[in-house]
Every structure is written in C-alpha cells, then in structure tokens.
Amino acid sequence: MSAPFAAVLIAGGRSTRMKQDKALLQWHGQELWQVQLHKLQSLGAERVLLSCRREQALLVSDGVEIIHDPAGVDDGPLGAITRCLERVQMPLLVLAVDMPWMTAAFLREQLSEHENPDQGWFFCGSHGAEALAGMYVPAMLTHMCQALREKNLKLQHVIEACVHAGAALTQKMSDEEVAFFHNVNTPADLNGLSALP
C-alpha cells in the first residue's frame, strides 16, 4: 500500500468459549499473540498497535503501541477498533489474535491490491463479512461511533452501513482463502491446529 497505514492486533477478548486466554495459547513454541503481532510487524505499517486488556500484561517490543480497553467498559471489538482508529487517523489493518492461519503474505497481497486510503475492505464468507481481518479507514468512524452510541455492537452491521455509504467494500473469499479466516474459539478447535501455512 503506497499510502501510510497502521496495523492493530485485537487480543483483548474474554475467551469465554476457550476457557483460557486465547492470546496466550501456545502455537509452535510461541504465544499466539506474539505470532500474530510478528505478522503485522512484517507488513511495513507506519504504526503497529496491540489492543488488549490491562490485566493481560502482554510485554511488547519497542515501537508497538498498547491500547488498553477502558476499565468497566464492555464494548467488544467494535469499541477496541474504534479507539485505535481514532488514535491513528489513517487506514488501519485489523487482525484478530485467534486467526492463526492468516498469513502475512495474504495480507501483503491485499495491501497491494487495495490502494484507496479512503475506503475500507473486507472479505465475505458464508457468515457475512469477516470483520476481524480487514482494513478500517477514518471515513468509517462516523458509522462506528454511531453504532457504539446505539449499543449496536455487531461489526458486520457497521460494515454493511459503510459499504452502503461507499466508505468500504467487500469481496467474496475464494475456497482457497476460507482457511485464512478460520478462528480458534473452543478447546475442540485446538485439536485442528496444524502447521503454519
């Protein structure tokens, strides 16, 4: 991407279905949050952020900005992404900590194909837009802030509104791309862990 952009790893989820912090899962000798953060750091972002809960106490290298979820506020990924986007005021590539099959190569390819810094982009699968692996842009903030005020925290609804307003676009993922967006959500999912692509 020729325009400056930032990247953020969303790692503050409560992991209730996993029954342990997904960010701390072991993935080929490293904690999952470290693996995912390294992917983002390899993409050439002007700023790299980590969004997490204060009590997670994730130790990051110099140059990574930590954005903590406010105490007592439960506004989910929408709140976390909105806070980060307001902070950087530039296109913001978002990646969830629980998408270990997402590759830096795939993200790099998308950055090269989507050059418009005023329009977000997302992939759609069988369950709608994949909101936690895509590009958010400042033009989307109006819709995001409105959704927060209305307590409508579903990111897919926000993306739909942004697409309708021309602030974002979606494209259908191919059969080969589906695996990149697979989540690790439950202990049973751990049995499906395979080598990094």
Rank of each mutant, 00 (worst) to 15 (best):
E176C: 06
K151R: 15
H68E: 08
D118H: 14
A133R: 00
L50N: 06
V8R: 00
Q119N: 03
K39V: 07
L107F: 02
L58Q: 02
T170V: 15
E86H: 10
L40V: 09
G29Q: 10
M140G: 01
Q146F: 08
F106I: 03
G79D: 03
Q20H: 05
V48Q: 05
A71I: 09
F180H: 14
G166P: 05
A195E: 14
L78A: 08
H143D: 12
R108I: 03
T82G: 06
C145H: 05
M18I: 00
S2W: 10
G192N: 15
A179S: 12
G13A: 11
L148M: 14
F181L: 00
H114D: 06
R17Q: 13
P4A: 09
D189R: 09
E109T: 11
V64H: 06
A57V: 12
F122R: 00
H68D: 04
Q146M: 07
W33S: 09
A168K: 02
R87H: 14
L32K: 01
Q26V: 06
H143V: 05
H182W: 08
L111P: 00
D118Q: 14
A168C: 06
A168Q: 02
M1A: 13
L92D: 00
E115N: 13
F123S: 10
H127L: 11
V64M: 07
V88H: 04
A139D: 10
P70L: 04
L25M: 07
M173K: 04
P117W: 04
L9D: 00
A11H: 02
S112V: 12
I67R: 02
R54M: 09
K154T: 04
W27N: 05
F123E: 06
A105I: 03
P77L: 06
W121Y: 14
H157C: 10
N152C: 13
M140A: 04
V64K: 05
N185A: 12
G63V: 12
S112A: 15
A179G: 05
H38W: 10
L40R: 06
F5I: 00
T82L: 05
G44E: 09
Q119E: 11
P197D: 03
V60N: 03
K22H: 06
V64F: 05
R53M: 10
M173P: 00
Q36N: 14
W121G: 03
G29L: 12
R47T: 04
E130P: 00
R14V: 07
D21P: 04
M144S: 01
C52P: 01
A168V: 02
W101F: 12
T142A: 13
L196C: 09
L193E: 03
N185G: 08
A165D: 09
H164A: 15
A168W: 01
G192A: 14
I81P: 01
A57K: 13
T170W: 01
Q36C: 06
Q30N: 11
A80S: 15
G192F: 15
E115Q: 15
G128H: 07
M99N: 03
C52R: 01
V35G: 02
E86L: 15
T16M: 09
S126T: 08
M18D: 00
T103H: 09
D74C: 02
N152L: 14
D74I: 03
L95D: 01
L24M: 15
H164M: 14
F106D: 02
T103R: 12
L155M: 15
L49P: 07
R53K: 13
Q146V: 06
E46G: 05
Q146N: 10
L25E: 02
